[in-house]
Design a protein around this nucleic acid. Structure first.
Lengths: 152, 152
DNA sequence: CTTTCTGCAAACGATTTGCAGCAGC
DNA sequence: GCTGCTGCAAATCGTTTGCAGAAAG
């Protein structure tokens, strides 16, 4: 994990009386290195943190706003660094076949229009928006390729 | 459940050798009546269908394309009638506090831009898009009201 | 009538938690 | 050194499944 990220994470954890322990560093390192949302199991694999601790740490990191949960397609929740820690706003491409979630950047035009739509929502329904999710589902290239093929 | 919906549902179920039983009617009636995505538990409550049957039926209805699963915030998956059965395209407002998911209609302008974005994705990443999800998260009016208050 | 559906209770897998000792700050 | 963290194993919760009898077309 980069030193800048570590410092920022420590800042976010402190108000909740949470410490930046070796396991939390490992978890954040795994998420940072992956560059896409990971399941708890993938985090355990990549960080060598025991499962129960991984669950606990991910939960606390979410509360601290350092990590966000992303819902994919079955197979449990996925996690990635919050946008303020990963440096950029993005959306998700979810493959409904293999479950992999990858990131993509939306056009500036779309973002602008979304912002306008969100403002309208507050006015019409009183809903206070904190986040928007624009996920796209379909079939990734790899799954398209393996589809018509013999042998699974 | 309206007769038109019933007929359409029967049509969708038949190819999979699935019958439109009294429980499946009850489940669809609950979803239709709610007008928002329901958890399995809410479906059980409103339809008086035993839990295991509700799970089985919802799964089958999803396979038949009559129902879609919507991911909210914890508390299990939520379900609603597929757009072709509920008459309109819409998106979701998810309250991160109470978990309630409600529907809202996007502007035509936003939909047009989303369609364009989705086309671009196929071209740049080879991802074959089948569905887009534009969910908005935040705090519903009821939860805003109960927030600063004493007693919970 | 034949095939699918139902209801129960038991199985299952993912996630959470209690507790005694270890580690940040 | 005080307070929060860890690891294990046991508890929990949502979901799935096997099976014998009921119901749909």
């Amino acid at each position: 994990m980069s030193p800048a990220t570590a410092a920022a994470a420590a800042q976010a954890l402190a108000p909740l009386d949470l410490r930046l322990t070796r396991h939390r560093r490992a978890v954040l390192g795994a998420l940072e290195g992956a560059g896409r949302p990971l399941t708890v199991d993938e985090v355990v694999q990549r960080s060598s943190v025991p499962t129960s601790t991984a669950y606990r740490n991910l939960g606390e990191l979410v509360e601290a706003g350092v990590v966000v949960r992303v819902s994919g397609v079955g197979g449990g929740d996925r996690h990635e660094l919050a946008e303020q820690f990963s440096q950029h706003h993005h959306h998700h491409l979810v493959c409904v076949e293999c479950g992999i979630v990858s990131d993509f950047d939306p056009s500036a035009q779309l973002e602008k229009l979304i912002a306008r739509e969100v403002d309208a929502l507050l006015a019409t329904s009183g809903f206070r928006v904190t986040q928007h999710v624009f996920d796209v589902r379909g079939q990734c290239q790899a799954c398209q390729a393996s589809d018509g093929e013999p042998g699974q």
